[in-house]
Structure formats: structure tokens, C-alpha cells
Amino acid sequence: MGHYDALLILSFGGPEGPDDVMPFLENVVRGRGVPRKRLEEVAEHYLGFGGISPINQQNRDLVEALAPTLDVPVYWGNRNWHPYGEDTVRRMREDGVRRAAVFATSAFAGYSSCRQYYEDIARISLPDGPELVKLPHYGDRPGFVEAMADRVREALARLGRDDARLVFTAHSIPLAHARGAYESELLRSAELVNRALGRGGEWDLVWQSRSGPPQVPWLEPDVCDHLREVKADSVVLVPIGFVSDHMEVVYDLDTEARQVAADIGLPMERAGTVGTHPAFVRMVGELMAGPEPVPCSVETCPQV
């Protein structure tokens, strides 16, 4: 990893108190024409958890886990809330960083999950450095797969049902944005996790956290609709599309989906996200030590 002298973890960001919630959400939807009423509805999800998203603390934990495994300093910046990426890059420049690997906390192809991070890097880069190099997608890397498989094993143990049906979940996106490799990469990753568990049989990939006008088609089925129709005696939800517990995980799965399962009498557990699993932490170093990343094509991660 000698060709990098720092690592930047670049993430989505999240509020850390009630007063942060609306300004954070306004940052997220700026320029998209989202109605105020919709923002107020989403704000209630955050306020139900004290206005605190778990993602920031999980990023701090990831920084702490990575630091002793690397021989370069580890920084962290966000797209939508403090610490903002641009502030972190200024600090990196002051610290003398010349060339940094950028690890996005999103494992798969797509606009918001990949292309937008390239746009972030362009926006926060400074004329006098440091150079920022985005690391590639990693949903099929052995470290990610191993970590996700372990999280599923833990959920199966809590449930006490080795034969529970695995229902993998990821953030839904509008069909108009679903060109490219987003769905195919998720399908491959889910298959690899299922294989790592030594399981045969069927599993499902479903979607969650859709927003926007109801007349705009998004990837389906929704996880809650799927739970109502699934032919299974028990289910483990596997949030494969997330590397840490975003609000979409703790609200849409742990609250809404869990309530649906309880209402219909379906035993359900939610697998953890990869978080700071040792295999996942090790994978980041492997990505840094690997070949020089080649930016993915617009066909893989389309612009919208």
C-alpha cells in the first residue's frame, strides 16, 4: 500500500441530535424538490431514535478498527453532515497527505452508491491536493462475503432455526436509475454469501426504503410486502446492501418489518451489517494493496 499515504473513509453522514435532523435531511434532498411534508415524515423516524443515526458512531468504530491494521493515517468525512468531506480533506492537506485511498461505505454499483461518490471526490478535491483515489466496489470480495456470512450465522443462532429462509435486502431505487450493475452485483453477492454458508435451496433479494411519488416505479418487491407473502416458517433478513446500521436498517427493518412479521406470526431475525467484522476490516487493507483502481464506467454506474 506504499502508493497511498492515507485512507479517507467517505460516508453518507447522519444527524447526532434532534436539532440536526431537519438540516441533515435538507442536505440530503437539496435540489430534488422533495415536499416538506415528506421530510417531516422521515424526520419522525430519526426523532424516534433521539434524532441520532447510528451511522456516525459506526464510522468512528470503523476508523478505530482500521487504524492499527494500516501503516497510514485514517480519516473520515461525510457527504451530508459533520464531519463534511471537504473539511476533512483540508485537514488532510494540512497534515501533508499527498495521495489518499478513498473507501466509500457503499459496496455496490449504482448512482447514489458509487457514481455520486466520484462526484463527491471531485467536489471536495483541492487544487493543491491531496489526490483522492476511490477504491473499487467490494460486494463480492471474500472479506465482505465472510463477514456477511458470519452475521447470518449469528442471526440463525439467535432464531434457533438453521433452516430459516434468507431474505436479502437493499435500498430500492427508481427503475429509471436501475440501469447498470446495481441489481446484478447484489444478486452475485447474495449468492456468494449463501454459498459461504453451505446452504442450498432458494433465497430472496427484496428491496426497502423506497421514497418519492407513488406513481414512479421503483425496484420491487418491498420487504414488508414480501414478508406477508413468503412461504416460509421463519426468516432471517440480511441487509446486504448496507455496511453499517443506517436509519434505513434500524427503522425500516428493525421497526417496520419486525412489526409486520409479528403481526403475521412469522419468526424473524435481522442479521447484523458487516460493521467492524475483522474480515471486513482486513478487506479494506487488501483493497489498498491491490492494483491501481480503474474508475467504473457510466454503463456500470449510470449518471442520473
Rank of each mutant, 00 (worst) to 15 (best):
E286A: 11
P174E: 05
E286W: 05
G129F: 02
R151C: 12
Q215M: 09
V42Q: 11
Y118D: 03
R161Q: 09
D120K: 05
V74C: 02
G212F: 06
H277Q: 11
S184I: 13
L25Y: 08
V167N: 06
N56C: 01
N80A: 03
M283P: 03
P267S: 15
E44S: 07
V133G: 05
R151A: 14
H226C: 02
D120E: 09
Y84P: 04
E220G: 15
D95Y: 06
G110Y: 00
R98F: 11
G285T: 02
T255L: 15
I55R: 03
I52Q: 08
P293N: 03
A43F: 13
V193I: 08
H171F: 12
I52F: 13
S244Q: 06
M92G: 04
E191G: 13
N80C: 02
H82L: 11
T255R: 15
D128R: 04
P295Q: 11
I264P: 03
K37H: 13
A196L: 07
R195A: 15
H226T: 00
A262L: 12
E269W: 09
A181D: 11
G14L: 06
A262V: 05
A122I: 03
L39F: 12
H177A: 13
A122G: 04
G129Y: 03
C301P: 09
L70D: 06
S234A: 13
Q215A: 08
N78E: 10
R32V: 01
V34N: 02
G14S: 10
E16W: 09
V145D: 05
G77V: 02
E154I: 11
E229D: 10
F168L: 10
V284I: 06
E286R: 01
S234K: 06
N59V: 03
I52C: 05
G48E: 04
A196P: 07
V230R: 07
R79H: 00
L70V: 06
D233N: 09
T273R: 05
S125I: 06
S113T: 14
R258V: 13
G51D: 08
V29K: 06
S244M: 07
E131V: 14
S297P: 05
R188D: 15
P295I: 12
V223E: 04
G200T: 07
R179Q: 14
D162M: 09
P213F: 01
G13K: 13
V298Q: 14
V230P: 00
F108S: 13
H171P: 01
R179F: 14
S172F: 02
M22I: 14
L175E: 01
V260W: 14
R93T: 08
H177Q: 11
L8D: 01
L132Y: 01
F144Y: 14
R179I: 08
R93Q: 13
W76Y: 05
D128S: 09
R195C: 10
V236H: 00
Q58R: 15
A279D: 07
H82Q: 14
E229R: 15
L10K: 04
M268W: 13
T169A: 08
G180S: 01
G285C: 01
S297Y: 00
G272S: 09
A101W: 00
R60M: 08
V281S: 07
G17N: 08
H137G: 07
S189W: 01
V34K: 03
A170P: 06
L8E: 07
A262H: 15
D150A: 15
